[in-house]
């Protein structure tokens, strides 16, 4: 077994502008274990308002557990988590967060619902019990559908759409309640390379246009380095927490540390340089 290293306690330098904005999510020395198995150790992580953070790591590295802690379905053994300043379990303003789960596209493909109906369901929690959808709410739904470029598909049955399009529907559903933070868990699993690329471009666009804070959990390291502000590399401990350029420079070392063996990353950088 590998020896447990002591995590770097001090914050790594931020990539500039976000230094002054208030944190949307803050994890302080968080550890968690299932029964006897330690899954997360001494995690320090900060996501500031308007920042695009990618959380990468191999399978079983604790990414999903970390998300469950953030969303309040699990409770840390030690350490503190603050979501918009309050503890996830106490957090009651679900509509400030948009969440696209990994299981989102494993829904019942024969479900009788149109794109518009599914996107509207993202508003129901915010709307509250006994309130009906009004004109302005439907306009908001149409707007969200437009943002993800699915206007022509609004009245189609969701099961008839391609995997990539369905993924966009779920983004629209998460966006419709005007969240400040969008959390995406492996959103491009089962989506072809071209659609995945389009998908990342859409995220960057939303991020820039609306100042949306994004937390993207993925194992697709090559793709994200080109798009995100900062990267956190996780495998039980946090191996790296910094900006994309620093990550690219030391990629080999970080990934070897995190994955336990050297890995080769396909780099699909684009003409459009996002971090500039």
């Amino acid at each position: 077994m590998r020896e447990i290293e002591i995590c770097v306690k001090e914050e790594l330098p931020d990539s500039g502008d976000f230094h002054m904005t208030k944190p949307v999510l803050r994890m302080e020395d968080v550890s968690f274990s299932y029964e006897n198995q330690t899954v997360l150790e001494h995690i320090h992580l900060t996501l500031r308002a308007g920042e695009f953070l990618a959380l990468v790591g191999p399978n079983g590295s604790g990414k999903s557990t970390l998300l469950k802690l953030v969303l309040g379905s699990l409770h840390p053994d030690s350490g503190n988590i603050f979501l918009f300043g309050s503890e996830p379990r106490q957090f009651r303003e679900g509509s400030r967060i948009g969440y696209v789960s990994q299981k989102a596209n494993s829904f019942n493909q024969d479900f009788p619902a149109t794109v518009r109906e599914v996107v509207a369901s993202g508003l129901y929690g915010k709307l509250g019990l006994f309130r009906r959808m009004k004109q302005q709410h439907w306009e908001r739904v149409n707007q969200a559908i437009e943002q993800v470029g699915l206007n022509d598909f609004a009245d189609r049955n969701i099961g008839r759409l391609s995997g990539g399009q369905q993924q966009r529907v779920f983004i629209a559903r998460a966006l419709v309640s005007d969240p400040e933070l969008l959390i995406l868990d492996e959103p491009t699993v089962g989506v072809d390379a071209h659609s995945a690329e389009e998908f990342y471009k859409l995220l960057v666009h939303l991020h820039r246009q609306k100042g949306l804070s994004l937390l993207l959990v993925t194992h697709d390291i090559g793709a994200v380095t080109a798009y995100v502000d900062r990267i956190a590399c996780l495998n039980r401990r946090l191996f790296f927490h910094g900006n994309g350029e620093d990550f690219s420079r030391e990629k080999e070392r970080i990934l070897t540390d995190a994955y336990g063996h050297p890995i080769h990353v396909m780099d699909h950088r684009h003409e459009e340089n996002v971090s500039s």
């Binding site: 509509s95 829904f107 619902a113 509207a120 929690g125």
Partner: peptide, 20 residues
């Protein structure tokens, strides 16, 4: 409760997270 029932039927997890 039409809208809550719809949201829970389509995706229980997300519906619950969104505050239903």
């Amino acid at each position: 409760f039409y809208k809550e029932l719809f949201a829970l039927s389509f995706d229980e997890e997300s519906a619950a997270l969104s505050g239903i």
